[in-house]
Design a protein around this nucleic acid. Structure first.
Lengths: 328, 328
DNA sequence: TTGAAAGCGCTAACAG
DNA sequence: CTGTTAGCGCTTTCAA
């Protein structure tokens, strides 16, 4: 079914049909009704493909995510779709499995689909990304990692400050030997910034950094065990894990090994992953504004269509005290 | 940047550029290289919009989901994107917030975008859906709810059997008074089928159904409290919740009220939501093949492009025994 | 108030 | 081996 067929059925020209479709220009009431009736009956829907060709605007926004099986990403995407839907944009979703080559490939695919912009939930941003994006010239906003270095607008979380605050909180509770479960530093936000916060907080409180208390694994819960084995040799009174999953992995490890949380040892996470709330004990953690960051990034992108300014938006956070820490 | 501009730069016709782009027909090696160089330098990417118009194939698949903040949906979508990506399709995502009018609207939007097919993660399927889809004539596969009644292919989980098996399991463990926390029956799969399983298993074991043991809320954890208050008056020895979140809500309620799980009362859920595994105690539940159902549905859809047969695919399940049940 | 015609970017006969 | 041309479905002057 095309506009031409509708025109023929209504015995008018395609222009006239187009006019009633877009409510533009003059159409005699009687003719309008005739056409509307036919459209209704046939279930005809105009093609956005043809329209897109005509006015080079697809109203498509490409969203690139590392994976979907994390609450973080889900919330960000939820925020994105919520905002874009309101503004009449449709979301194209690309799931990369955190593979750089996939990320680059999807950026190209999006360009071919002529998306009006890209939202990139990144775990790291490289020169390759920057060069490709530069070349393809698509509006983009990064989420979760700062791409300001390459001149791209970004929506980031205050990872450094949050981790520092959390560490200070533990220190205030009397802890001086705080184990740290981190992830690869190639993930600047989670791996590097949070670690910096952890270190600086101790530095400012004149606590000597003990490398024996610091373990680096990956995001998989299975990586917690070796990390914990290393850390526990130093007999810490608290564990600071950079994500809630890792924190819960740590707690489960402790329980399995006969410790009580928080009686014997305190544990905190970051991310307020939903599990944190319903877990037993309730996990003390930092709540980030994930849903809001998705909305904010989408908003930034849409706004950049008009005035293109590269900027960085910092999202807030909140320390949520629950039952996994005790004072010593 | 268009094919025309590339053609001009390379001093050839657009057809020749098109030929090197698609690796079709003959092009003199020397000319080919010249064109490729220009494409490379300019970062030109052919427009899928124009291509789509030409050969009425967009390689777009629309995915409609109720919301993203559940592990179930995330896994299904993960499975979908995984499969579609392999096959060269791109995913359009529509997040409805479980509002019927949004669902219908997105189906129309997808039609306008000329998607080649739709995957609908449904919570219920109505006549309105059926009529619209009939009229718009878009290939579709339902996920999670059976739309066979309206002649649409569906990928569903064995909700009835799984719930029945779970109930039988509790019975075998010696439980005769089993509380039931369900959801609205408008959700046929989760609300109705699972309840039927619960009832039939008891019927077959000559256990009289006590309406006082059956409570119906919604998916929100907050709805658990009133349900539990009602059920606990009957002093059950076990609770069967139709989702893991609900089950954990129940456990938290019990703990708050001084009960021990499973010592005082057993609790089981359904869905193997990830929380089930790391929760304390480990939750006995049913693991569904969510990721696989996404893949399976996408596969069905793509296959239906060739031979269009409406069919129903039943996904398997597995009872996962953990630590939230004891024998009585 | 309506229609004819051109053009958006690309591909595929067809002709050379 | 390469170019010309028509047409995909739609909107938008420009005329009438």
């Amino acid at each position: 079914m095309t506009i031409k067929e509708i025109a023929k059925l209504a015995e008018v020209s395609t222009s006239t049909v187009s006019r009633v479709l877009n409510n533009s220009g003059y159409v005699k009431q009687e003719v309008r009704e005739r056409i509307e009736k036919i459209i209704e009956e046939t279930g005809y829907m105009p093609s956005d493909v043809a329209k897109g060709l005509k006015d080079r605007k697809t109203n498509l926004i490409g969203v690139i995510i590392p994976r979907l099986n994390s609450r973080t990403t889900s919330l960000v995407v939820e925020g994105i779709t919520r905002f874009l839907d309101k503004k009449g944009y449709t979301t194209l979703l690309a799931n990369t499995g955190i593979r750089l080559e996939k990320e680059l490939e999807f950026i190209k695919v999006f360009k071919q689909k002529r998306v009006n912009g890209i939202l990139f939930v990144a775990t790291r941003v490289s020169k390759e990304h920057a060069e490709l994006l530069e070349k393809l010239d698509v509006p983009i906003v990064f989420i979760g990692q700062d791409a300001g270095e390459y001149g791209f607008p970004s929506v980031v979380h205050k990872d450094y400050n949050a981790a520092k605050d959390m560490t200070k909180y533990l220190i205030k509770k009397g802890h001086r030997k705080i184990g740290f479960i981190g992830v690869e530093e190639s993930d600047v936000a989670v791996g590097l910034e949070r670690k910096r916060g952890y270190i600086d907080a101790q530095f400012e409180n004149n606590i000597e950094i003990d490398q024996g208390l610091i373990a680096t694994g990956n995001f998989e819960v299975s990586s917690v065990e070796p990390s914990m084995e290393k850390i526990m040799q130093k007999k810490p009174s608290a564990i600071f894990a950079v994500t809630d999953s890792l924190a819960i992995g740590a707690i489960n490890y402790l329980i399995k090994n006969g410790y009580q949380v928080p009686e014997d040892i305190s544990v905190v996470g970051m991310g307020d992953s939903g599990i944190a709330e319903i877990y037993n004990p309730g996990l003390t953690t930092v709540k980030y504004e994930y849903l809001e960051s998705g909305e904010e990034a989408a908003k930034l992108l849409i706004e950049s269509f008009e005035n293109k300014v590269a900027l960085r938006k910092m999202m807030g956070y909140k320390l949520i005290e629950r039952d996994s820490v005790r004072s010593v």
